[in-house]
Simulated scan of single mutants.
Amino acid sequence: MDDVALAPRNATHGVIAVWAVSLVAALVLGFTLPAEVRTGWILIAFGGIVLLSFAVQLSYARPQGFIARVSASVGGALLLMGLVSAAFGISALAAAL
Rank of each mutant, 00 (worst) to 15 (best):
A94C: 00
A7L: 05
A17W: 14
A72H: 09
M1V: 10
T32A: 15
A45F: 08
G14I: 03
G76T: 11
F66Y: 15
L6F: 05
L78F: 15
V4M: 10
I42N: 13
V70W: 03
G40Y: 12
P63K: 12
V28I: 14
M81Q: 04
L83C: 02
D3I: 06
L83N: 00
V15L: 03
F54W: 01
A87D: 12
I44L: 15
I42K: 10
P34H: 10
R69Y: 06
W41M: 12
R62G: 07
V84T: 11
A95C: 00
L58F: 01
Q64C: 00
Y60V: 08
S22L: 06
R62M: 15
A87S: 09
L93V: 00
A7M: 06
A94G: 00
I42F: 15
V70I: 14
F31Q: 13
N10D: 09
A92G: 03
F88H: 08
P34S: 09
V37S: 15
T39C: 04
H13E: 07
V21D: 08
V24Y: 10
A26Q: 01
P63H: 12
L80D: 07
G89W: 00
I42H: 14
L93I: 01
H13G: 15
P34T: 08
F66M: 15
W19M: 03
I90W: 09
I67P: 04
A20F: 13
E36C: 01
